[in-house]
């Protein structure tokens, strides 16, 4: 019999539904591969559950707060249970766009210009007074997005400054920190990286949506978005994008898997928007799509991720 694996899914985050979809798919794939699998919808009994029913490995199919931000990773470290995907540090940094962008800049990774403001800065320090400066420096349009929130929830594009207050309230409804970022017009692409010591990059996926931004609904609704693999870009630019993705993966010390979202400006300059350390595994997710384009079936992809984590376990 193969190893016992618990698939963590659901939980309380706003991406609960997406996580259940990812988790159920992963669960089926692991069963198909002969693992002894259980599903765990995460709630306050998670720890006691894992202690009473020991497993060899935890597969993290959680998205969003607590599942992707280092929280569950830290718990699993304490419990000494190996788990799939990046560790605590990469998760903390990857989930917080303010932190990851700061690191991108320090490491010479291109990212759109931005400012970070918090609810506290508005409430305690009158941050509304700096918004005119923000607009002057970044120029319009500006993308307002919550610093810590997946699935493109809470993102708004501000075309004129009148729209700024409601966009800020929107983003701050999802998180206490908001990123105000220069809007890059161009092609949105997504690059997935697998492995750690010698990370392997998957083909670049181009996401082409009828809307001006790849938002939650275009992500999970049928026919709203078109995908091209590889992205419709010149060969050398695709290579540059893949190199940047590997650099992000390495710089943030990611292991096993990460998905890097990049905007390519009309001038052909790539800018890293964000890093996902627990990429979606649903029917319409980008990582499984990129893997499939390289001939890796979904169940093989899942087995590969489990393999990375098991190898780590043996190494200990």
């Amino acid at each position: 019999m193969r190893e016992r694996i618990a698939v963590l899914m659901g939980g309380r985050s706003l991406e609960r539904d997406v996580s259940l979809k990812s988790g159920n798919r992963v669960y089926e794939a692991l069963r198909e591969k002969g693992f002894r699998v259980t599903k765990l919808d995460v709630d306050e009994s998670l720890v006691i559950n894992l202690r009473q029913n020991p497993v060899d490995l935890v597969y993290i199919a959680l998205h969003g707060k607590y599942g992707e931000d280092g929280t569950v990773q830290e718990l699993l470290e304490i419990l000494g249970i190996p788990y799939t995907g990046p560790g605590v540090y990469s998760s903390i940094v990857g989930f917080d766009k303010a932190l990851s962008k700061e690191i991108f800049i320090r490491k010479g990774i291109p990212t759109p210009d931005y400012f970070t403001l918090s609810t506290g800065s508005f409430r305690e320090m009158g941050a509304a007074g700096v918004l005119d400066r923000v607009v002057d420096v970044l120029g319009l349009p500006i993308v307002a997005k919550p610093a810590c929130q997946g699935s493109a929830l809470g993102i708004k594009i501000v075309h004129n400054k009148d729209e700024l207050p409601s966009a800020l309230i929107g983003a701050l409804s999802y998180d206490d920190k908001v990123i105000l970022e220069k809007y890059i017009k161009g092609k949105e692409v997504s690059v997935s990286v697998l492995g750690d010591e010698k990370p392997e990059v998957l083909p670049v996926v181009e996401v082409s949506t009828k809307k001006e931004y790849f938002d939650f609904e275009s992500m999970y609704s049928m026919g709203q978005t078109e995908y091209f693999i590889p992205a419709r870009l010149p060969e050398e630019l695709l290579e540059r994008i893949q190199d940047i993705a590997i650099k992000v993966h390495t710089v943030l010390d990611c292991r096993d898997v990460s998905r890097i979202d990049i905007m390519v400006s009309e001038e052909g300059e790539p800018y890293v928007l964000e890093l996902n350390t627990s990429p979606g595994m649903t029917e319409t997710s980008l990582l499984p799509m990129a893997a499939a384009a390289k001939g890796i079936e979904f169940s093989d992809l899942v087995e590969m991720l489990v393999g990375f984590a098991l190898k780590r376990k043996r190494a200990v």
Binding site: T119, F122, G126, A128, L131, D162, P165, I169
Partner: peptide, 17 residues
């Protein structure tokens, strides 16, 4: 909470109207 945030934004940063 949202209202007070909104007010602080609109007061410091009134719309053109």
């Amino acid at each position: 909470k949202q209202l007070s945030l909104y007010k602080s934004l609109v007061v410091a940063y009134p719309s053109e109207d």
